[in-house]
Design a protein around this nucleic acid. Structure first.
Length: 135
DNA sequence: CGTTTTTGACCTGCGC
DNA sequence: GCGCAGGTCAAAAACG
């Protein structure tokens, strides 16, 4: 485990670079996207972990649903989501340009299904999470 | 065969 | 009002 829980709630805004928006094929996407009726609070916590592996097994399964590059790091950021349908938890992993060995894992939301393994593993860290939750 | 991963495109929100 | 940035979804392909 990493002995260094650096929690940082960073609602970073701005920055970014070019976004290739070019259309080529006819797909016709964009329908009714229920995005805006979400009033439930969504806690956001960022943790810096020192690992060469992007995704660490927290005891849950994560499915990558996207990758975008950020100007802040010049490196692509990876977006992960919990494979549980009852779990609307999202994870965001970004590598530091200064230290590629350091990965910033940002968790969004809370798990809706029980997981003793994760509970025990994050028991000490969970305490920190709750502390940050009050902030 | 099932699941997962990867790339592209599109939409939404906010800023200026 | 328009532009920019970021975030998400979708389909296909690859791998177990």
């Amino acid at each position: 485990m990493v002995s260094g829980v650096t929690g940082a709630a960073a609602p970073e805004s701005g920055a970014g670079s070019s976004s290739g928006v070019g259309r080529e094929e006819t797909k016709g996407k964009g329908s009714a996207r229920a995005r805006g009726s979400r009033k439930a609070s969504r806690p956001r916590f960022a943790f810096q972990t020192k690992s060469e592996n992007d995704v660490l097994d927290d005891g849950y399964r994560w499915r990558k649903y996207g990758q975008k590059a950020v100007k802040n790091s010049a490196f692509p950021r990876s977006y992960y989501r919990c494979t549980h349908h009852t779990c609307n938890v999202k994870k965001q992993v970004q590598r530091l340009a200064k230290d590629t060995s350091i990965v910033v894992t940002t968790y969004e939301g809370v798990h809706n299904h029980p997981c003793e393994k994760l509970m025990e593993a994050l028991n000490p860290i969970l305490r920190q999470l709750q502390f940050l939750s009050q902030l």
